[in-house]
Design a protein around this nucleic acid. Structure first.
Ligand code: FES
Ligand code: FES
Lengths: 186, 186
DNA sequence: CCTTAAAAGTACTAAACTGGTACTGTATAG
DNA sequence: CTATACAGTACCAGTTTAGTACTTTTAAGG
């Protein structure tokens, strides 16, 4: 489906939120409350992020999570790497070597590898600090940005497909402008 | 998982194979045999591609499928659009408008839209004709190929002679160099 | 006509994956 | 010593994907 998983989406959301006050320690419960997500879910995501050293954790009373590096140094690609358990790549075959017996003769694998590379560059060019910005600044990846017109203007040439149901409340995750009662660890 | 679906992978594979002899009509059975995929599956993919006008079909005896435009004008993004039934976008929320009630206040949606744009550009920069090339040429189009006329006849005689052991089942899909007995419609 | 080849359409099922939850264990502040 | 908060594991239900089967329609050719 060419989508990141919801958990990964939550991850970027959480980190982006934390990037808003990088010095502070954030508890899982506080983040869950602030973002409108379930505590067990947030907890799960943070645990995984911790395992991949994107956040550090402090256990015990008044514990919580802290970004382990400046938010400008955490790219969306990092988040994906941490939360998606399969290696990066658009096709199974091009994601890792050795899974397919035909690698030697395959004529399209190289091309997938290159596509993967370009996509990854794009993802590496955006940090979670960029995400929290109101989109104005952060002119996006230093590299590779095709010199063409801004993709935002993409003509509506391609029709919408199916009804895109999925009527669940919040599909992905949102950063609802920080609330007053969001005090986290005080 | 940030993967395209297998069906989509098959689609690029099939189209890349057809791009090897763009003028010829290919039957679903012939393609299935040549690529080592199941006929019902190939059939399903081609039907969908037809519905999205990437290929045209001819029914009846000696029927088959034909690329509906020059292969240089069919991008990987087009294939994805055709075969993935959800609209393009890395997150559900950024893929289409109106699914999320928080669009107004969301502070990260814009950034996802931009990421989507960059990724899409990368995917649009590669045509199925590029895919069949031995990776040497085709320095990965900056973006949209000039929609001008296709450079005409373009040899397309990329006939590598290959053993094509075909025995092993492959995970994704491979282009095993075209075989001698791959005559399709004769 | 009649037969045969081939695509179109519909529907179903098994398997895999995802997302979410529960429960139990461990560390730390006060 | 107790309350708090993270860690790890396991499980389950819902969804999605991939593949198959069956029926119908179209066209060519004798
Ligand atoms: S979550 Fe839907 S727009 Fe931000
Ligand atoms: S299919 Fe695995 S390498 Fe081509």
């Amino acid at each position: 489906m060419l989508r990141i998983s919801k958990l990964t989406d939550y991850g970027t959301l959480i980190l982006a939120h934390m990037a808003g006050s990088p010095e502070r320690m954030h508890s899982a419960a506080g983040l869950a409350e602030a973002l409108g997500l379930g505590l067990p879910t947030v907890s799960k995501v943070l645990k995984t992020l911790g395992r991949h050293t994107l956040v550090t954790s402090q256990r015990g009373a008044h514990g919580g999570y802290l970004l382990s590096r400046p938010p400008t140094q955490i790219s969306v690609a990092d988040v994906i790497d941490a939360l998606e358990d399969q290696p990066f790549g658009l096709t199974e075959c091009s994601a890792s070597a050795g899974v397919c017996g035909m690698e030697g003769e395959c004529r399209i694998r190289d091309n997938w590898l290159r596509i993967n590379g370009v996509v990854r560059q794009a993802l590496q060019g955006v940090s979670v600090a960029d995400m929290v910005h109101p989109t104005s600044g952060s002119p996006f990846g230093p590299q590779r940005r095709p010199s063409g017109p801004d993709p935002g203007g993409e003509p509506a040439a391609h029709r919408l497909h199916g009804p895109a149901t999925l009527g669940s409340r919040m599909t992905a995750a949102c950063i609802p402008a920080p609330r007053a009662d969001d005090q986290e660890i005080r």
